[in-house]
Design a binder for these strands. Structure first.
Lengths: 263, 263
DNA sequence: CGTGCCAGGTGCCCT
DNA sequence: AGGGCACTTGGCACG
């Protein structure tokens, strides 16, 4: 059975339900609750309707009716316990390191379900910084004619250089890549690497290039005043076989079932 | 009615269910699905069991059985459409800016619920950077004897200074606060502000202090080599009335119902 | 483990 | 709308 559920369960049935499915299924509670959290920070949340999700890996999410982010949570690896107290159901999640305690006072559960969530597929994502790195190593002249990339993720005391290379005049070239619009922080990061290299190899022999699809105004100003350079480059989205397949299927079906309309 | 649900719905009932509750209730689908996303990046996710959550504000989450983070999502403000295609249910979410399209091919819905999620309470959180700012303004000698904070969030061309002040010798003092262990990036940030101030007021008249509970090794090294300073300070967790109340209640109840045990 | 840093980061606040 | 940045950031990869 994929899904078990209880509608408006009494507290006894709820406890048994949790006991049966915890650490095995994803448990979802549509509930009225309040939340206390104490850990890296500390928070309280008064009584209201929320969705509680408890995953088999110990992660716990409490969602409000808005936004992508949970209002409270505990990451995977946390351990769950629960008890009845004065006819209220209390869920406690404890994270060991750093020590964080989350406590949910559940006043009412409108609906509970447990989902034996079987999933053997991983996300296949493209268009990230790593794809930019690959692209530049395959085709270095995207940076400039004569650019020779030497190593990626090159470690120095002040951080990790995305791509280290040399230009046609044998100057060191430090690339800092950003998959999205680069900001002040990106410039500071590049500057930090360049300054270390300059202290080692001399002012004249080191260049720093920020590689990104665009720049904020502040970043551009700082970049110029620091004699750093900018190269416009957008992260590539690789052709994904599956994506194509699904889209094709999609299109084929469209021809057959023309009447289908988006609602 | 707080919660409506369908167990193992056929596709027609499912469509009506969605039509009835979308943009009004939080809809949760326990489903087998695949996902295509194209926007800032691009991804595919093959068939598997996942939890789909659609909130009234247009945010959409697709959760696997692990981790705190959704595997795919769309933030609030996105618009949802859906249709039947070859006996499969397809959900499409479109975000306008930046343009991002998410498409879920739903092969099977094991269970669907819609939750009229009424919530008038906001999270009350303490222990954040803002609390550190307040603490320092209330008690400036936490930084050092004679420190005078002058303004918070002081804007300069290269960013925003957390706290700007003067020391007892009338030097400018720039504080960069971190609520958690400070890293290389924190030092770079402070350095960026300090360098702007030095270029305006001269080398000798400007100090930079990183204020945080601790430092990474790399950050400490960089800080020292840049003649910046460190002041150990941990963000305060304010006494939260509600938290106390709940804990007290909790304790009182414990005395009454001693037999309750954590499971 | 700590260090460093990317992320489709998200969300908040300010101009 | 763009900028700057905090976040209980989470998550990953590497030493």
């Amino acid at each position: 059975m994929k899904v078990h559920f209880l509608h408006k369960p009494d507290i006894k049935n709820l406890v048994n339900f949790i006991k049966e499915h915890i650490y095995d299924s994803v448990i979802i509670l549509l509930s009225r609750c309040s939340v206390i959290y104490d850990g890296r920070a500390k928070s309280t949340l008064n009584e209201g309707d929320r969705i509680i999700m408890i995953k088999p890996d110990g992660s716990l999410l409490i969602h409000k009716n808005k936004k992508r982010e949970p209002v409270n949570w505990q990451p995977s690896g946390s351990s769950i316990s629960y008890k009845i107290e004065n006819k209220q159901f209390i869920i406690r999640s404890i994270r060991k390191k750093p020590r964080e305690v989350l406590e949910i006072i559940v006043y009412e559960v409108y609906h509970a379900c447990a989902f034996k969530c079987e999933d053997y597929e991983e996300l296949n994502l493209t268009g990230s910084e790593g794809d930019m790195v690959d692209m530049i190593f395959k085709n270095p002249k995207l940076i400039e004619e004569g650019f020779k990339p030497l190593s990626k993720e090159y470690q120095i005391p002040t951080g990790i250089i995305d791509i280290l290379g040399k230009d046609e005049n044998n100057n060191w070239v430090i690339l800092e890549l950003k998959r999205r619009r680069a900001d002040l922080q990106s410039v500071s990061q590049l500057k930090r690497y360049v300054e270390y290299f300059k202290s080692k190899y001399g002012e004249k022999r080191v260049r720093g290039i920020l590689v990104a699809p665009s720049l904020t105004t502040g970043a551009l100003n700082l970049l110029k005043s620091e004699n750093l350079e900018f190269k416009k480059l957008t992260p590539p989205k690789k052709d994904q076989t599956l994506s194509k397949k699904l889209n094709k299927k999609h299109n084929t079906i469209n021809k057959i079932a023309i009447l289908d309309e988006w609602l």
